[in-house]
Nucleic acid binder design. Sequence first.
DNA 1: AGGGCCATGTAAGTCGTTACATGATTGT
DNA 2: ACAATCATGTAACGACTTACATGGCCCT
Lengths: 182, 182
Amino acid sequence: MIAVSLRYALLGLLTREDATGYELTQNFKKTMIHFWYAHHSQIYRELSKMETERLVASKVVPQDDHPDKKVYKIKEAGHNELLSWLIGGDVHPPKLKDEQLLKISLFHLISKEESISYLQKSKEHHNQILARMVELKTSPEQDCSEDHIGGYLTLEFGIRAMKMWIEWCGWAVEVLESLKKE
Amino acid sequence: MIAVSLRYALLGLLTREDATGYELTQNFKKTMIHFWYAHHSQIYRELSKMETERLVASKVVPQDDHPDKKVYKIKEAGHNELLSWLIGGDVHPPKLKDEQLLKISLFHLISKEESISYLQKSKEHHNQILARMVELKTSPEQDCSEDHIGGYLTLEFGIRAMKMWIEWCGWAVEVLESLKKE
DNA sequence: AGGGCCATGTAAGTCGTTACATGATTGT
DNA sequence: ACAATCATGTAACGACTTACATGGCCCT
C-alpha cells in the first residue's frame, strides 16, 4: 500500500553486494541518476530504520587509514519484502518535479533571447549526463546477461532519454528562432 | 537559493488567469502531468502561505448552485518573485522518483515472464498518457504563438517522451524474449 | 594551504501524502 | 441508489532537504 520506495532501492542494491551507507550513496549517483536520487542523510536514516526492523544487519569494520565503516548486509526478511513489492502491485506513475520544464512552460514571460540561452544551458546539462552514461556503458557490469539485465535495460533507457532531451532542445531553439524572424 | 518550486508553478498558472485552488489543481493535472504533480491539500496550503506573504490576494465569490469559491489573483510582488526565479539561477537537474524504472532495474530478481508482463503493463500506461497528450494538442491554447510558446514546447516534449518510453518498452521486451530462447 | 575524498551521523525545517470532514448538484 | 464533479480545508504522518558536526588522508 505504502510507497517507501527508497527502502526498495537500497535493498535492491544490497542484493548485489554488502555495502556501507557511503557506498550506497555513491552507487545511487552512479547507476540510478536517471530515475532516483537520495541524500546521504536520508540513506543513513533508512538503513538504521531497516536494521531495527531486522531487514538488514550491520557489522563495523575497523580501518587503519580511514574512519571505521559500517557494512550492511541484506537479511532474509529484507529479501522477502523486496520481492513481494517487486511482484505485487500496480504500475505507478513516476513522481517528477522537473524545474527545467517548469521554467520552459513559462517562456511567454521572458524574452526569446533569454529563452534560447536557457535552452542551450539545458542542452549542455543533458549532454554532460549523456556522456557519463555512455561511459558507464563501457564498464564490465554492462553486458546484457541475465544477472545484469535490469541495469542494462535502464541504462539504455537513460541514454535514449538524454538523446531525446538534446534533440528536443535543438528543435525548441529552432521554433524560437523562427518566431523571432516574423 | 531555495527550491519551493510548487510556488512558482502556481504563480505561473496565475499569470494566465485568476483561479481557485480547485481550478489550479485541475490545471496541474491537465497541462503539467509530464513534469509536475501536486495534491490539492498542498496547493491550498501554499496558496494561503503566499497570501500571508502578500504575493497573491484572494476574493470570495458566492455561488448559488455550488459552494462559494475563493478566487486567487497574483499581485505585483508575486510577479516579481516569479520573474527573478525565472531569469536568475542555474539549471537544476530534475528530481525524479520513477518506481517503474526502479523495478525494472531489479529484473534480475524475477523471472523473464514476470518482467515481460510488467513491461507490457508499463507500455500500456504510457500509451494512455500519450493519448491524453495528443488530445490536449487539439485544444485552442495549443498554437505556437508567443503567448502560448511554453505550453506548446513542453507538450511536444511530453509527447516525445511518451513515444520514447513506448518504443523502449518494445525494445526491452525483445531483449528479454531473445534471452529466453538461448 | 586548500580542496576533494573517505566516512558517519543528527537536527531543524520544509515538502508531500493520506485520511478526515462536509455537502449540494448532476448524470447513469 | 451510486458515483462523479464542484469546492475547501485540516491533521497526522512520512519523506526530503539543508545545515551542522567531526576529522584524517591524499594530491597539487
